[in-house]
């Protein structure tokens, strides 16, 4: 199943949420974690992942640290204070979007509407 287009808009939220739960992660680890959590249904492509990570870093939402691992340098990403604040707002935004999508796709499903 190709979810690439659907994932695109929520990739930053996914990254922020994963980093909130895992403290620090490196690029490849993020792709594997998403694959594991979705039983392989969602695959984050490298083409989208690294630009998104660099963008979040430049926006001050992520900070990085480098570490020597088996004779190579590994770059770990973790949330900054601003990033921690941003997770909740991004999550609320995404959840609101999913609920609205549900209402469109299934008009009989209307939780929260009076």
């Amino acid at each position: 199943m190709s979810n690439n287009n659907l994932i695109k808009g929520s990739l930053q939220t996914i990254i922020l949420k994963l980093l909130e739960e895992n403290e620090r992660m490196y690029g490849y680890e993020i792709t594997q974690k998403v694959k594991e959590l979705t039983a392989g249904e969602i695959k984050i492509t490298e083409g989208a992942l690294y630009p998104a990570l660099h963008k979040l870093e430049a926006d001050g939402l992520l900070t990085t640290e480098i570490e020597q691992v088996d004779n190579r340098v590994r770059k770990y990403y973790s949330l900054t204070k601003d990033g921690q604040k941003e997770v909740n707002s991004k999550m609320a935004e995404l959840q609101g979007f999913v609920e609205n999508l549900q209402r469109i796709l299934n008009p009989t499903w209307n939780p929260g509407l009076t």
């Binding site: 490849y28 680890e29 490298e46 190579r72 590994r74």
Partner: peptide, 14 residues
């Protein structure tokens, strides 16, 4: 160097 080390780490990890 930052991109190179990240790409290399991705290759090796995979």
């Amino acid at each position: 160097a930052e991109i190179l080390m990240e790409v290399y780490d991705h290759y090796v990890s995979h």
